[in-house]
Amino acid sequence: MTKKKKVVIDTGDAGKGTSEIAENANTQEMEERALSVFASERNEDITALVLCLITTFIVLLFTKWVV
């Protein structure tokens, strides 16, 4: 007799490894598994880039363009 059950590290069901991470993947899943607050990797990277550009713009504004 074989007993086999799948153990689940309980984090919800979206964005599992086998499927692509959907645009609106379960945020909790991402938080628990990937230690990130973003719904997908692409969102995280793009947000990082946008925030960097905003920082750059503000810095440019106050150190080069306005002064």
Binding site: G15, M30, R33
Partner: peptide, 16 residues
């Protein structure tokens, strides 16, 4: 994040 998810999937499967 996909790699992290893949890793934990593998852990679950392997431990099961």
């Amino acid at each position: 994040s996909k790699t992290h998810a893949d890793f934990l999937d593998h852990v679950e499967e392997q431990v099961s």
